[in-house]
Design a protein around this nucleic acid. Sequence first.
DNA 1: CTGGGCTCCTGTCAGC
DNA 2: TGCTGACAGGAGCCCA
Length: 274
Amino acid sequence: MPELPEVEVTRLSFAERIRGARISSVRVGKPLRWPLGVAPESLVGQSVGTVTRRGKYLWLALDRGGLLMHLGMSGSLAFRAGGGAETEAGPHDHFDLVTERGTLRMTDPRRFGAVVWSPAIDAGAAARLLAGLGLEPFDPRFDGAHLHAALNKRRIAVKLALLGGGIVVGAGNIYACEALFEARIDPRLRSDRLSKPRAALLAAAVRTTLARAIEVGGSTLRDFRDAHGAAGAFQLQAGVYGRAGLACVRCDGTVRRIVQGQRSTFFCPGCQKR
DNA sequence: CTGGGCTCCTGTCAGC
DNA sequence: TGCTGACAGGAGCCCA
């Protein structure tokens, strides 16, 4: 579910409110993707510092180490203000970080998400999970030349190269489709066949697509909410995602759905070319 | 090393 | 109405 924009919108919606709050208790529900890696009680008494994002991961700095969080396919975080008296946990609420100022709760029906303690973001569990991630899309080093060089080292479909996250992080299934539509590139094009000028177009499209999505609060396809409970609106301006069989908004073609790497890809054969 | 496929889990929806 | 299969925003892991 959550791609970079949803994770960033979530971060922005609670980072300042939780900063400096002292943890009073921790509740762990059903197992998530990986174990927490530390006794929950050991977090009690520590204060939450800054909340940062790397790719689709959030890092909550604590006095000792921090928590690396990932929302998987169906996860979301809610922050409800108030000291005690937090709402009773539902069947899909698998992690509560209760602080003096409010409770940060992860809800995740499919449980592909994770909350993992790590001694530092660049050591231990966090370092292992973040190793191999590509550049942040808004990093100035992520430009056409970088993308072109990286794509040239691979021989996979350009869509899968974006999804992999080893070149640039953040574009998941929705935004990879949308960025390729924006750049008028056929998602099946082999990565090493993309010209330098078109790679520059694609790099720009990845940035603008993600930035625009953040501005409108992300995409709410079924259940995404930020930590205030607000829905996103990007899905309303999607050019191809979820629009199989519908008219292309840019040419007289019809949007098609194909499968790449066991995931749906949406594109317009009329204006997205190899 | 690379690319491709499988897998984790639950909910929802279309079709019969 | 009830059952079955397909599909869903991710990404680590295993195998050829």
